[in-house]
């Protein structure tokens, strides 16, 4: 096989391996389905009744929080994919991968693609709870929503791989990933509306690429949204590309 063919086969092998691992892990599947269900059913519905009067009158809190719940699933799910790198290092499997005659780029790509697939599946499960929060959309909108989710899943997974490449312990990974994920989530406009925030916080919201992902998801299913779709798509594309490059850089540096 030529080096390129081997690299491609390696991407497939790495992706397949992580997908098999995901589907064999019942707790992960349960978490993927259970977390968004609880979030939408309890949190969103609860808050819906608490302060729907303060929101944009065109939409209730349940409907408002829908895209946020998907984003949350993708953020936590994607970030967590980075832990597979720490895991592989801890249990020796990474060394077996690193002595294979494949480029580091192929390894990062395989890990990131597999992680993004798993993350997207989790996002899928979250999105399927739409009826629970009385969100309705047609097939075409569903495809647009899925595309928006896919780009975000790729970007966030790459971020997870970046952090995972630099961490040596599970504990370290847990701490750092929470530090990264929580602000990205809270400042995305997915949990609370961003109008009326203090200026410093509003600036952070605008600087947060996840904001545009949430906005794009809203736009794709016909909900009120803040930015033009071209801006949302542009920011997401840059976000995903930058994160993939960061993942590659971090992995290369860590693996030598």
């Amino acid at each position: 096989m030529s080096p390129l063919a081997t690299d491609l086969a390696a991407v497939v092998a790495l992706s397949r391996r992580d997908l098999i691992r995901f589907f064999r892990d019942r707790s992960q599947i349960l978490g993927a389905v259970g977390r968004p269900a609880i979030w939408m059913l309890l949190f969103a519905t609860g808050l819906h009744h608490a302060f729907s009067s303060d929101l944009d009158s065109r939409i209730g809190y349940k409907q408002f929080a829908y895209a946020g719940a998907i984003a949350m699933t993708i953020l936590f799910g994607g970030m967590f994919q980075g832990v597979t790198i720490v895991w592989d290092r801890e249990f020796g499997m990474l060394r077996a991968v690193l002595v294979a005659p494949v480029s580091r780029t192929a390894i990062v790509l395989g890990k990131t693609l597999a992680g993004a697939c798993v993350t997207l599946l989790q996002g899928f499960a979250a999105a399927a709870f739409a009826p629970l929060v009385e969100v309705h959309f047609g097939a075409f909108d569903a495809v647009r929503l899925l595309a928006a989710m896919a780009v975000m899943a790729l970007a966030v997974t790459a971020l997870g791989v970046t952090v995972g490449s630099r961490m040596r312990t599970f504990e370290g990974f847990g701490v750092i990933s929470n530090f990264v994920v929580l602000p990205l989530y809270f400042l995305s406009g997915g949990v609370f509306p961003t109008s009326g925030l203090p200026p410093w916080m509003h600036a952070l919201v605008l600087a947060n690429p996840v904001t545009y992902g949430v906005d794009l998801m809203r736009a794709s299913i016909g909900q009120p949204h803040a930015f033009a779709a071209t801006i949302d798509v542009g920011v997401q594309a840059v976000f995903a590309t930058a994160m993939c490059l960061a993942a590659l850089g971090a992995f290369r540096r860590a693996a030598g």
């Binding site: 081997t6 086969a9 092998a13 790495l14 005659p101």
Partner: peptide
Amino acid sequence: ENLEFHAMTHGID
């Protein structure tokens, strides 16, 4: 599966 993974990452047709 472990060996398949290895075969795929080592250019075995």
